[in-house]
Each structure stands twice: as structure tokens, then as C-alpha cells.
Simulated scan of single mutants.
Amino acid sequence: MTTNHSLGIDADRLALLPAAIEADVRSDRIDGAVILVARDGEIVLHEAIGFADRAASKPMQQDSVFVTMSIFKQMVAAAVLQRIDRGEISFTTQVREVIPEYAANGKGATTVGDLLLHKAGLPLGAPGIPPELVGDLEAVVAVVCAMVPQAVPGTSIAYAAVVGHAVLAEMVRRLDGGHRSFGGILKQDLMEPLGMTDTSLGFGLREDQVDRAVPVVVKDHGPALLDPHILEGVGKKAAVPGFEVPSGSAYTTAYDWFRFAEACRQGGQLDGVRILSPAVLRFARTIATGDLTNSLWDYAQNMRGWPAIRADLGPGFYVRGSGITPHAFGLLSSPETFGGLGAGSNCFWVDPARQLTYVFLSAGLLEDSYSWERHQRYADLVQSSVID
């Protein structure tokens, strides 16, 4: 047994993680992945496994560039948290106070907290939004403002994959004065301060990133939460400058995302640069949904025989919580473990009790319930490697 005594990590046990991913690549469940595990800020595992593009026999690299999918919602939340930190808005601020037209059709009482917790009664997809306008933030928000909510805002949880975080992004943009794009705000206020040199939203791919870009390919074309063709289309359009879907069309690398996650683990600062206060981060990663379930997983109860699963959302992050039900952050993780997930693909989490930071970015999207279980298996392998 090989042990990193200073960090309390059993290296032989941790090696089971890349071995498990390699097995999934060999069985063609996924095409490849980049993983990064750190304890107390020190990287103990950073590997590229399998293919960035299986069809082209292109190997994965540690600095491969991925479309973020929905882990980017946590970056959008961070921009909102910055505005709360500055006293410009609060979790209880009604959206109409910043976007007056949002009050239409019974949405007037919707709060910032409702949007962050997926309690705004908004749809899973993007109905009524023409495909050519999906990457136009102002056009998308105009359509959302005219929507009739599917439920009374604040009363139930229904995951909004696209539109909810578009509204949050537009709130940030308007609070900023409307002169910078939302992607520009993130670049200057979050990414550059954190040294995230390969992460961007709405700027397309740089010349030095083109050869490192991982295409979005859906492995499962059966029943799914989101249309595979839409997901693959977003992957292609993300490379075009000006295409801006705040819920998930950004680019990043595993190391870049580690820097964001690590800043969250360290209470909002990294390398002497502070992006958020410890207080707002503590609140953002505290479960605020009680016993409510997330209707996102209703289909899995029927299709997979799953039990009802508590949403366990904080106003900024998914949270592990407790109980024995499927969970992407693993059943061995501490209850306060927090992070984010991307459609059939990416996952990151921070276990503050054990000082663990984990990033997983993958090529080849799985159906979401199977992806959720895959993440659970990988997370538990990481936790099993901790021996102090």
C-alpha cells in the first residue's frame, strides 16, 4: 500500500478511480475524461483518460477544453453572490425589481432565491425560443418574461436547465449597467482574478484552444431529459463568438475548474485574491429546500425504480445531504459536500469536512440517471482513499 502520509491519502486506493474510468472507456460507456483530485489544496491526482474524440482516435489531454454544460450554473451563481456581497440585491429580492417586465403572467413575486433553487416554476427546456436565438441572452430573457409559470413560484422544485440562469445572468448584466456582456463580466470579475486562463463564455475558442477542444457527443440516444441533438448543437455553437448560454455553453479545463472549486473550498479566496465572502458562500451551500423533491428525477422513479429523492439544494450549489438514495457526490461524502453537475457529463464537488476537491470532465454524454450513478461510484472511490 502506497500512502501520502502528509495528506492522508492511500494512493493505491485512489488509483482505483482512473482504473474504473478506463474500464468505462473500454466498454464504450464513455469516450474519455480528465479527472483532478486535491486534498487541502494539493493536487493528488490529475489524469487524462481515453479519447477526446473517439471517432477521430484523438487522445484526451490534461489540458483538453470542454463545454461546461450545467456545472457553469455555479459560476453564474457566483456572479449573483458577488452582487449580494455588495448589497446590490438579496436572495429575497424580487426579480421584477431589476427586470420589471419579468412580473408578467403571475411571476411578480419570484425572487432571486427562487431562481437559484429552481423554484421559479420555469420549464426544463427552452420552449418558444427559436434555435437561432438560444445564444442571445436578451432575446431569451424577453421570451421568459412573457412565459406563464408552470407552478406558483416558490412552492415546488422543477429543474430549469436553460432559462432560469439566463434570467439571473440578465439581472447581473443590468445591475452592472448593461455595458459589458455577461461573459465579459465573468471574465473580468471571476475568471481573471482566479487565473482561469482557459475558461470563457461567449468568446468562442481561441486559436490555441481549437486543437484541444472536446466535441459534445451523446452516447445514449434513447429516452432522455434533454434532446441529444440540442446538446450536440450547443456544443458546436459554443465555439462561435457571441453565442452565450449562461446555463452551460462556456469552455473550461479541469485545472481551471479546480481553481474555481478550490476558491469555494477556501471560503471565497485563492492565492490571496478574494472573489466572495465566507458568509455568502456558507449560505449558498446550505440546504434551503427542506423535504421538497426535485421533479427532475420523477422519470427515474418510473424508468429506473428509484425512490423519491430530496432536492437538497442550496442557493448556489447542489448539496449531498444525508440518506441512502442515489447521489452524484457519493454516499460516503460528508453531508455538507457541495458542487455541481452537467448534463450526462461533468461533475465537481468539494467536501469541506475532509478538505477534498474533485473535478471530472468527460467526453461522451450518458443518460442522466446513469451518469448520476456513475458519479456516485467515482465519488465513493475518492472518499475510500482518505485514511485519516
Score class of each variant (00 low, 15 high):
110 T>D: 07
116 L>Q: 09
98 V>G: 12
107 K>Y: 01
99 I>M: 11
124 L>H: 13
124 L>N: 13
110 T>E: 03
103 A>V: 04
97 E>V: 01
122 L>N: 05
119 K>R: 14
98 V>M: 12
108 G>E: 12
125 G>E: 12
107 K>P: 00
121 G>S: 02
98 V>R: 11
106 G>S: 01
120 A>C: 09
124 L>Q: 13
96 R>S: 15
103 A>D: 02
109 A>M: 13
107 K>L: 00
114 D>L: 03
111 T>N: 04
116 L>C: 11
106 G>M: 04
102 Y>K: 09
111 T>V: 02
123 P>A: 08
123 P>C: 09
122 L>G: 08
103 A>N: 03
116 L>K: 11
101 E>K: 12
94 Q>M: 15
111 T>A: 01
96 R>N: 14
108 G>S: 09
99 I>W: 07
121 G>H: 09
95 V>L: 03
108 G>W: 10
94 Q>F: 07
125 G>M: 12
112 V>F: 05
106 G>W: 02
118 H>A: 03
108 G>A: 00
119 K>I: 01
95 V>K: 03
106 G>D: 02
124 L>Y: 14
103 A>M: 09
107 K>H: 02
106 G>T: 04
98 V>W: 09
115 L>W: 05
105 N>S: 02
117 L>T: 07
115 L>N: 05
102 Y>H: 09
102 Y>D: 02
113 G>M: 04
116 L>H: 06
117 L>K: 05
94 Q>P: 14
124 L>C: 13
97 E>K: 04
106 G>P: 04
110 T>A: 13
116 L>D: 05
94 Q>S: 14
99 I>R: 01
97 E>L: 07
109 A>F: 10
97 E>N: 06
100 P>L: 15
105 N>I: 00
104 A>F: 05
104 A>C: 08
100 P>W: 10
119 K>V: 00
106 G>V: 08
111 T>S: 05
124 L>T: 06
